[in-house]
């Protein structure tokens, strides 16, 4: 990719700028506003649909290994949540917000949380005073994602108790990205951008005649002129008798599904997804890969009778399509 020197300089300054944040603390250690307490545990369990009596029923909890009520381990992150001010950038300022603003100014305005990993070292009990400290752990290289080009930012939060002992940690990964432009928006003065099309087969000495047959609406099979063996995909020599003399015969186009797959991922431009591909046993005895039409993916099955129609697949390219037999 060609970059003019100004763009290159700006990109480099951005790269240097964001990397300075790696390893930085988000801010000073944050003392969670509430001690670990039973009402918050009860509310959380109710919302999550967790009815474990070790969290809720003091009598039962006393008889467990905990000897009393404990907080659900996965509740760890809730103790340092700041409530509604989290939504207002003016109310909470820290290094992570600063970093996100750097990304915003460079056009990486999108943000999405991708995953978290957590470890819980001990159960928290009512009365515990939790302190959290967050570090910006890493920033990935620039990545091309389905949402657009962007960077993954990982933060690590360590939680400690009133004795300064670590009780758990979590890492949190977000993607800061440039939202993808819809294709029409990137059209240049040449008009609407050209949609990608299916990849065509190259044509050479050994296969051009077969594709020319398709162009002419004929599904052909190569036939050895000496031993009569049929073969597909075609080739220059007969594997049965080593003869290089061959002719063609036209297929009836009737066949059965020998195997199939329905492609879901990655979606490839130019093809309709989900994309069913079938392996057909032609009535003549050779096998052929093609697409199936007029058939829902869940209706395709091995042994299904099909028939071939040669149709336009766009950009003047003709292909064999198989339809459920009438």
């Amino acid at each position: 990719m060609h970059l003019d020197s100004e763009t290159a300089r700006r990109n480099q300054a951005f790269e240097v700028g964001i990397r300075e944040y790696v390893g930085m603390k988000e801010g000073p250690p944050f003392a969670c506003p509430d001690l670990v307490n039973e009402p918050m545990i009860r509310h959380w369990c109710e919302v999550m649909g967790d009815s474990n009596p070790a969290y809720l029923d003091a009598d039962v909890a006393r008889k467990t290994v905990h000897g009393g009520i404990v907080a659900p381990p996965t509740m760890l992150q809730t103790w340092d949540m700041r409530g509604y001010p989290m939504r207002d950038p003016a109310l909470i300022q820290n290094k992570q917000r600063e970093l996100h603003a750097l990304f915003d100014r460079a056009g990486y305005t999108g943000v999405v949380a991708t995953d978290t990993e957590q470890e819980f070292i001990r159960y928290l009990r009512p009365g515990d005073q939790i302190t959290s400290e967050t570090t910006i752990e890493s920033i990935s290289e620039e990545k091309a994602t389905g949402l657009g080009i962007g960077y993954f930012i990982v933060t690590r939060t360590v939680f400690t108790d009133q004795n300064g002992d670590e009780v758990g940690w979590l890492t949190f990964r977000v993607l800061k990205f440039k939202p993808s432009q819809p294709p029409a928006a990137v059209a240049t003065d040449g008009g609407a951008p050209k949609a990608p099309s299916r990849i065509k087969s190259p044509r050479g000495h050994d296969n051009a005649w077969w594709w020319e047959g398709i162009d002419a609406g004929l599904l052909l099979i190569q036939k050895c002129r000496d031993c009569g063996a049929l073969r597909h995909p075609p080739g220059p020599m007969c594997g049965a008798c080593q003869s290089s003399r061959w002719e063609t015969t036209e297929s009836s186009g009737e066949g059965t599904v020998y195997s199939y797959t329905v492609l879901h991922h990655p979606p490839i431009p130019g093809y309709d997804f989900p994309c069913p591909v079938v392996l057909i046993d032609l009535q003549e005895g050779t096998r052929l890969v093609a697409n199936i039409a007029a058939c829902k993916p869940e209706e395709i099955h091995i042994g299904m009778k099909v028939e071939c129609r040669i149709e336009d697949a766009g950009e003047g390219m003709k292909l064999p399509f198989f339809y459920p037999a009438r």
Binding site: K200, S201, P202, P233, V289, N291, L319
Partner: peptide, 11 residues
Amino acid sequence: IHWGWYMPFGL
């Protein structure tokens, strides 16, 4: 040439 038998169909 080999892949030409599969590419047009999405395989």
